[in-house]
Write a protein that binds this DNA or RNA. Structure first.
Length: 302
RNA sequence: GGUCGGUUGGCCGAGUGGUCAGGCAUCGGUCUGCAAAACCGGGUACGGCGGUUCGAAUCCGCCACCGACCU
């Protein structure tokens, strides 16, 4: 039987975590968590990270293993997962990867182009340029430095412009020259499974999950992290709204309302992203037995 | 019974004769190293019926509903 990576995707709140524990136990697999925020050990409640019981039942990788002030990225995730997989496949021919970070999932499944590390000072330089000259300043700079990418990129998105500029300047070569969009071949089979729910049902699950987070003490967790609010890790649904509440900018109720809304938007964004992926086999989240049966058939031929 | 005010898209809210204000929600989309990020797009609605007008959400009349006040 060929080594198989089962990739479980689905919008936030759909029930991935508990389903993945069930699936992992069924296949005797570990779980590779594919979640750009659950990697931080200080962010537990707001990221709905697996609880201790779940962590005990199945070994999870890439959960709570970094501190919020540590840098991480989709590319590092690709590297780390590929390094770990041989070891996991040795124990078991089926490995489950699950999580909601789209770019991370794709990095593992398809690869991401090799782009040299950038000089942090350059990143700051362009951030300052953006602050002082706005998107227009970034546009002009990119037009000079990398006209090819200039013609393709979304010229209204500062994040993308800054990224291209920092690469171009750090490496001395245009950002566009690094982009091959080549799909990397993997030496294991990838089986993609998506789970979703009717939109209204999903939204009401999201609402009740947020109620649980609040009851579990999200406010206190956020308060304990307020010193890190400038870090990207904290630019996360659930935390940034709480920070605005702490500032007195909005009321507690407004903050909770915004968390609900932003979580819905995130779920929508995930569905849009995965909706384009024709390799995903979709299932209703409410029918785990159907999924297990299908996977058994695919993986073990039974 | 009377007087006055109001009735705008899912919600809030501006407009007051002639290129569908705007915000929120919602829906849809983009995406190659901070991605739970960043960005983009979509709504001819004006209580009802008549009238005036080339043209009415905007003016007039009647009706309905809501509110305040008066008898």
């Amino acid at each position: 039987m060929k080594d198989t990576l089962v990739v479980l995707s689905g919008p936030t709140g759909v029930g991935k975590t508990s389903l993945s524990v069930e699936l992992a136990e069924h296949f005797g697999s570990d779980i590779i968590s594919c979640d750009s925020r659950q990697i931080y050990r200080e962010m537990v409640i707001g990221t709905a990270a697996p609880d201790l019981q779940q962590l005990e039942r199945v070994r999870h990788h890439f959960v709570r293993f970094l501190s919020v002030n540590e840098y991480y990225s989709a590319s590092l995730f690709e590297r780390d997962v590929l390094a770990l997989l041989p070891e996991l496949f040795e124990k078991n021919p089926v490995v489950l990867m699950t999580g909601g970070s789209m770019l991370y999932t794709d990095a593992v499944c398809k690869g991401i182009d090799d782009i040299p590390d950038t000089d942090p000072a350059v990143r700051i330089k362009y951030l300052n340029k953006y602050k002082s000259e706005g998107v227009e300043g970034l546009r002009l700079a990119l037009k000079l430095l990398d006209p090819v990418h200039y013609s393709k990129v979304d010229l209204r998105n500062p994040r993308r412009l800054m990224r291209a500029l920092e690469i171009t300047e750090s490496t001395g070569k245009p950002y566009s020259s690094f982009l091959t969009a080549e799909k990397r071949e993997r030496d294991f089979r990838i089986l993609k499974v998506g789970i979703t729910l009717d939109r209204n049902e999903l939204y009401s699950r999201i609402d009740s999950r947020i109620d649980k987070m609040m009851a579990a003490g999200l406010e206190d967790e956020a308060r304990s992290l307020v010193q890190y609010r400038g870090l990207n890790a904290l630019n996360t649904v659930g935390y940034s709204e709480m920070f605005r509440y702490f500032d007195g900018e909005i009321t507690f109720e407004q903050a909770v309302g915004l968390i609900r809304r932003n979580t819905r938007r995130y779920a929508k964004k995930q569905l849009t992203w995965w909706g384009k992926d024709k390799e995903i086999n979709w299932f209703n989240a409410g029918e785990p037995s159907v999924i297990i049966k299908w996977l058994d058939h695919q993986v073990r031929g039974i």
